[in-house]
Design a protein around this nucleic acid. Structure first.
Lengths: 204, 204
DNA sequence: ATATTTATGTATCAATCGCTACATAAATGG
DNA sequence: CCATTTATGTAGCGATTGATACATAAATAT
């Protein structure tokens, strides 16, 4: 596109990834421009020139997060042959991702900005929209299970999707509290125990 | 005790309740001294004279929260005749409390300070301790269910307590996202659906 | 070569942060 | 009455917040 002017001396995407890590660990409010610029290895004017504002940087960072960190988890929904396996793999991959010890624990989308009054409204709204999309993805997968005959016609896909999404949100806080992978998997087991009752397939 | 000196012109407990509401709505970081003092109807020097610091005020506020807002929910554990009813009532009261429209949504203990690096460490540590106590309370009630023969000897009380605590944490975020009481109760239904499988009492 | 364009790095900006010094007000003790 | 003690309210502390002005550097366009 535009190759005029002095070229940027840092990798825009690599710096964005560093910013994502800071937001992930500290949240939107807790991450200062000083924190961000230092982690990105640049000065604040370069940050503003490249990303616009703290808000815009956060929105880009969460988008990167969704595409890089979250993709694997949500791909499970599409790839699994049955709704039951889709939910189980979705939760198990969540447990694995949330307990990575070399990354901030829990989910940026879930924990990034929960207090609307103080954070800018746009930040909360964007995260809420992403959470709503995730809820929809779960519901769609369950509805596919109904359409394919795996689940009974009366299955309440909306309620079940709400339940599993809520479990995943809780796992973010559990992970922040230092829960081990085994503890997170115990939660997954609990959630999947609900499946049998909800689906009416009391097979075990 | 000491009745010397000019008497305080505001109700210390009433002002603390106002501070609790501000922390509840905005979180620890998001609540500024200006916000707090304004809501409490006092000036900041009076705030510091009466409570010591922002941290000390928060700790007092969360203690009040536990005793006033949380008591009803956790009393269910002791009062219910069976472990199953204890968990169900605990979750149903949570759903009711978290969806009160005239109060901040979700739980102060859960949402008040999730990002350790930015908030003072003591705040996060205190909230974590309270969450850990809650987890223990759940486990103890389940263990009582085992002792009383309601639950099988091999029942994993720790794992089940972790699961139900995680569901409750998730409900805080669900409530923050504007979930209706019905939606929260759908999550409760999901969690209780797990009970039957976990307890091995496939009665329905 | 010169003009133009964009990036970098220093040095801030006004606003707000948590917190407090200080003078005054209002109570009790002697 | 006067000293002591505690609370109130104004004013402002140093530090940090998100964001910029400005001079310089390094590239392309003509």
């Amino acid at each position: 596109m535009s190759e005029r002017g002095r070229p940027r001396t840092f990798d825009r995407t690599a710096a964005l990834r560093r910013a994502m890590d800071v937001f992930w660990a500290k949240g939107y409010e807790g991450a200062s421009i000083s924190d961000l610029a230092a982690a990105m290895g640049i000065y604040s004017p370069s940050l503003y020139a490249a990303y616009g504002s703290k808000e815009a940087l956060f929105l880009e960072a969460t988008d990167l997060y969704s595409r890089v960190e979250g993709a694997d988890i949500w791909l499970a929904l599409e790839e699994a042959p049955t709704a039951r396996l889709a939910i189980e793999r979705f939760l198990r991959r969540t447990a694995k991702a949330y307990s990575q010890t070399d990354r901030p624990q829990g989910c940026l989308i879930t924990l990034g900005a929960l207090h609307e009054d103080s954070s800018r409204g746009a930040i909360c709204t964007d995260l809420r929209r992403r959470r709503a999309e995730n809820l929809t993805a779960l519901r769609k997968r369950l509805e596919r299970g109904v359409a394919e005959g795996e689940l009974p016609a009366g299955f309440d896909c909306r309620a079940a999707a709400t339940f599993f999404a809520t479990v995943q949100h809780g796992m973010s806080i559990q992970a922040r509290d230092g829960a081990s992978r085994a503890a997170l998997l115990a939660t997954v087991a609990g959630a999947m125990a609900a499946w049998k009752t909800m689906a009416g397939t009391v097979e075990a």
